[in-house]
């Protein structure tokens, strides 16, 4: 924002406060563009140059001046876009840590929205929203779900027959599934998982 524009913007806020002028849609759009850019930067690991205060203030002003809905729907769209991008890459589940870190930053920058707009309009809080979007776009994308399940079962079978496996990877995956909530862990993995050993031991018993 140039200096002059900034002054015009501040003046607008002053006018708003004094006479209750609604901040115009143009302002809201411009502010959202800044926040959208910040979310992209966060996902692209370029966040260190971002100012927390500036983006928090932008989000705060949007919510304060009744643009909470625009901010929230923008967030959903932007985060979904990023998760769809991630789901295209081969080892998307490995990006879980990145997503988690980005989610925490975004949640804190949008803290004011979480505190006021989210409860008053019965929306899902940012953190939970981020987990749900990850579940729907990554874990439940048919490609990933199949691959993830096969990898896990494969690893466990390998270990049963005495082969070396990457336990760290297994631990991270299981932790992610637990973090996503008991329903994700149980329905998506525990059930098919418990069926496999049955087959394994049946085969073993027929060998002898």
């Amino acid at each position: 924002m140039s200096h002059q524009k900034k002054r015009a913007f501040n003046f607008k806020i002053e006018t708003f406060k004094r006479y209750g002028v609604e901040l115009d849609l143009k302002y809201a759009k411009k502010t959202w563009k800044l926040l959208e850019h910040a979310i992209h930067e966060i996902y692209n690991h370029k966040a260190s140059g971002l100012s927390f205060e500036e983006h928090y203030r932008n989000a705060y002003n949007m919510v304060l001046h009744k643009y909470g809905e625009k901010l929230y729907s923008g967030l959903v769209a932007t985060m979904t876009w990023h998760l769809k991008e991630i789901s295209r890459c081969i080892e998307s589940a490995r990006k879980w840590g990145d997503h988690n870190m980005a989610l925490q930053m975004i949640r804190d920058i949008l803290m004011f929205m979480d505190r006021t707009f989210v409860p008053s309009s019965h929306k899902t809080p940012v953190n939970e929203l981020g987990l749900n979007l990850w579940r729907d776009n990554i874990i439940h994308s048919s490609e990933t779900q199949r691959r993830l399940l096969n990898t896990l079962i494969d690893c466990v079978n390998k270990e049963r027959t005495g082969e070396f496996i990457n336990r760290g990877l297994i631990r991270n995956i299981v932790k992610m599934l637990m973090d996503l909530g008991p329903s994700v862990y149980q329905q998506d993995f525990e059930k098919p998982f418990l069926e496999v050993p049955t087959n394994f031991f049946r085969a073993e018993s027929q060998h002898t």
Binding site: A47, S48, F52, Y56, Q104, M105, D108, M111
Partner: peptide
């Protein structure tokens, strides 16, 4: 909590 988060994350501040 706002200042708390501000200094928590690896952002500019």
């Amino acid at each position: 909590p706002v200042f708390g988060s501000m200094f928590l994350h690896d952002l500019k501040e």
